[in-house]
Design a protein around this nucleic acid. Structure first.
Lengths: 259, 259
DNA sequence: GAGTGGTCTAGACCACGTA
DNA sequence: ACGTGGTCTAGACCACTCG
């Protein structure tokens, strides 16, 4: 028995979740139960429960009680989305584990002309105040929102094109961009791992204690001109990010005892 | 004035942090201040503060008070670690932003023979109970731990080799593995975004509300044999994960309006 | 109506740095 | 010595859903 009482309670419950004693979806003791079992006041019992909720392990479903959370992540493959990219046998074997098969996708689209937030403007190399076209999407799986997808394009490039229609583009925005003379040659992906903003919490219906990955993809042409910045917010508990890469031949260089 | 009082307080403080009114590193009002300013009890004021702490925005430094957290992320490039990979001009321009330049790296190494946890055993295709060699490292920057790095190798492959020495391998574990006849041809990277376990919190000295990215890299030979699994835990607030990829030529295929 | 969690109060004592 | 946050108590009232 070490540490504050609320931590002892939380530790005990956490262990029983980790070792499978309490299965995903199962109900935890009620707050009243904990109060009597541990001889503490209700705020103390609640402190233990909210701590676990903030770790993403449990969630409350009033007025039913507290429950162990379940996870059903889908694979998120920046290299593959919208393109046909060969997958290796290893990758295929993983995909079965938790794939999106049999789940119903849906998306809402909205188009706007905006002055992008600084991180986006910087990556598009826009002058301060310069406008961009943004295609905002919320993507759903089985009716649950699971990622926010905002694609930005410099306004001059796409004005009057199909990209400004708030409808799905069957052949893809990238293709439209290429037809306009701005074929992307390479993409830079960045991932920021953080807790969500309140807006993200509500748009993604995130449970307390759910982190997000912000994926910022910058597409540039052969000339190095950035023509597209995608700002993607992924619910952490609903995604596994996957990349496949070749291992370069090992040269005679310094330490590679790193990774 | 909408929602519970503690949320109103949290919203107000969050907004002042977001818009820069409260700069990183600056001190927030004391709990006593909030109690009088908002006419609430201390637990209510504390609820607002701990909520912000769980979002990773603020942290308490007893007995000084509450402070806005600062961030100094470093770039994490799975493609480049230990290898010389050319960076594009775009990437270079980003690197200046927050790079690890001038910061002091250090690492602790420890080698053990273990039966890996299921996720690792599965990726190494080990039989149940089969042993593996693990090189555990904690990596520091400026004395702060910022990532946990556990590299697993099937025991049979590396028994008696240099890999079992708890010392840095100048030419790299990958090279040693290649010399043993197991050159990796490709690597599968997975990233899981989640809240840390208590062990990870203490090993990484994580502040409350700091998520982590678990990076699992599986290296396979040309024959498809997995010979190395790296389990990396990155402190979310200290890393930006970066990839660079070529954009494949656009074919005549269905929707690529995705990414 | 009974039971659940959500919110809130008004105190209390403690450990710990700073001055 | 003082002020800070950390912990804890013993209540209270509310909204909500379920049987």
């Amino acid at each position: 028995m070490t540490g504050p009482k609320w931590q002892q309670i939380a530790d005990k419950l956490r262990a029983s979740i980790a070792d499978g004693t309490r299965a995903p979806g199962s109900q935890l003791p009620t707050e009243a139960d904990l109060v009597t079992k541990w001889a503490v006041s209700r705020p103390t019992a609640r402190q233990a429960l909210t701590a676990l909720a903030n770790e993403g392990l449990i969630t409350s479903r009033p007025p039913r009680g507290w429950f162990v959370r379940e996870r059903r992540p889908v694979y998120y493959r920046p290299q593959a989305e919208g393109h046909s990219v060969a997958t290796s046998p290893e990758m295929d074997s993983f995909m079965g584990e938790h794939s999106a098969e049999g789940r119903q996708p849906r998306q809402d689209i909205e188009v706007a002309i905006v002055t992008p937030v600084p991180p986006v403007a910087q990556r598009l190399r826009l002058e301060p105040g310069e406008a961009a076209v943004v295609r905002r999407r919320v993507r759903y799986l089985d009716g649950e929102p699971f990622n926010l997808n905002d694609s930005y394009f410099p306004r001059d490039l796409v004005a009057g094109s199909e990209i400004m229609d708030p409808a799905e583009i069957a052949r893809g925005a990238n293709r439209v961009l290429a037809e306009l003379g701005f074929r992307q040659e390479r993409v830079l992906d960045e991932f920021h791992v953080r807790m969500p903003t309140p807006q993200e919490v509500s748009r993604l219906a995130l449970a307390p204690g759910t982190p997000v990955a912000a994926h910022i993809a910058t597409g540039v042409t052969a000339e190095g001109k950035p023509v597209r910045v995608v700002h993607n917010v992924l619910a952490g508990d609903r995604h596994v990010i996957v990349y496949e890469r070749p291992m370069p031949p090992i040269e005679n260089t310094e330490s590679s005892d790193h990774e």
